[in-house]
Simulated assay, not measured.
Amino acid sequence: MEAHAVPGEGADVQVWILGSSGGVSAETAGRNGLRFAANYHVSPAAVLEAAEGYRAAFKPSAELERPYLTVSADVVVAEDEETARELATGYGAWVRSIRTAEGAIPYPTPAEARALPWTDADRQLVADRVETRFVGSARTVADHLERLQEATDADELLITTITHGHADRVNSYRLLAEEWHRRSAA
């Protein structure tokens, strides 16, 4: 018996290009008429450039007649602003570990994060990521996401929640989904 396994064979596979600037990735996606995902959460300062570069280079294809843009964002949602900020405490230390030779550490609890040594250089290293997360109540975060969607004219948003506790991540997604549904139903 011979096996024949080809991932995606027979499926309606969508090809996406992922990028964080208006450079080669955005232009390649646009020139080839493919979907493009822009990393706001990785390179927030370049997301508008990426969206514009993609649209400027876009040529219709058998895949797409018009550009299709997804924009990613990191969010932490909780019942109130203070709880959300507490759940997000470990983010800076985690990003620092990724950006240094240390390598990604397990996402720290708020107490573990507060106990880690922290310098001005560390704050500078992660400022772009920490300052552009959307952290707060569902209403606050949904307001930020609506502004991001409007600024980029994204067709969809890709949301990532990173917290120490799994239940907190699930709750963050649930609260945001409920708020988003409430707004779309209004």
Rank of each mutant, 00 (worst) to 15 (best):
A5N: 11
Q14R: 09
D12Y: 05
N39G: 12
A51K: 02
R55E: 07
W16E: 10
A26F: 10
R35G: 12
S20V: 14
A29N: 00
A5K: 12
R55Y: 02
V6Y: 14
P7D: 11
D12I: 04
S20N: 11
S25W: 15
V47E: 01
A56C: 10
A56S: 01
G30V: 07
E27T: 12
P44F: 05
A57V: 05
A50D: 01
G23V: 05
Y40T: 11
A29R: 01
P44Q: 05
G53S: 01
A37G: 09
A3C: 12
V24R: 13
V13T: 08
A37E: 09
D12H: 15
S43T: 10
Y54T: 13
P44D: 06
L48W: 00
A51W: 00
G53E: 02
A29I: 11
V47D: 05
A51D: 03
E2P: 02
G33Y: 12
G10M: 06
I17R: 14
E52F: 02
G53R: 00
A26H: 02
T28Y: 04
P44I: 10
F36Q: 15
E49M: 06
R35W: 00
V6E: 04
E2S: 12
A46W: 04
G19R: 07
G23A: 09
G10N: 02
S43I: 07
F36I: 10
N32S: 08
T28K: 12
A57N: 02
H4I: 15
N39E: 14
A51E: 00
P7K: 00
G10W: 09
E52Q: 04
A29M: 03
Y54C: 08
E52V: 06
R35A: 03
A29W: 02
V42D: 08
L18A: 07
H41F: 00
G8I: 01
L48P: 04
A3I: 13
R31P: 13
G8H: 08
A37T: 09
G33D: 10
E27F: 14
Y40K: 01
N32L: 15
G22N: 06
V13F: 07
L34Y: 06
Q14V: 15
P7C: 00
E52N: 07
A5W: 03
A51Q: 03
A51T: 04
R35D: 05
V6R: 06
S21I: 05
G8Q: 03
L34S: 00
R55F: 10
